[in-house]
């Protein structure tokens, strides 16, 4: 599955710089609002669903080579966080729906928690 399919199907807003999202592979999904869990549980090229919007999420996503972050419930990261994400080449997306709903839709699309 590529990131463009996800953005189109879930009608997500792109918070960071636009690019060709169809070339970006998404291999799995992960959801947590606790950084320590994400650090141990999320996989490279995965998509991370969270309602956290503070700047620490960018550092974690960069560290883990995540494909993108979906920030739920329209939580708005500040400009500094967005700048930092652009700088580190992290894609941040946004949805008005809560974690549960976003995951449900990704699951419908066939995305699973593990790589295979």
């Amino acid at each position: 599955m590529n990131l463009n399919e996800i953005i189109q199907n879930l009608n997500l807003k792109v918070l960071t710089n636009s690019k060709d999202f169809s070339t970006i592979k998404v291999k799995s999904g992960y959801c947590s609002d606790l950084l320590s869990c994400v650090m141990t549980g999320a996989e490279p090229e995965g998509i991370w669903i969270t309602l956290m919007s503070h700047s620490n999420i960018v550092a974690v996503a960069a560290l883990l080579d995540l494909a993108a972050i979906i920030i739920t419930e329209d939580a708005q990261p500040d400009q500094q966080t967005i700048d930092k994400a652009n700088e580190k080449d992290i894609i941040m997306l946004s949805s008005p729906d809560p974690n549960y709903e976003v995951i449900g839709q990704l699951w419908e699309l066939g995305l699973r928690a593990t790589k295979n």
Partner: peptide
């Protein structure tokens, strides 16, 4: 961060 990890401080 410690407080945030307990689910508070959002």
């Amino acid at each position: 961060n410690e407080i945030r990890e307990m689910g508070f401080g959002a």
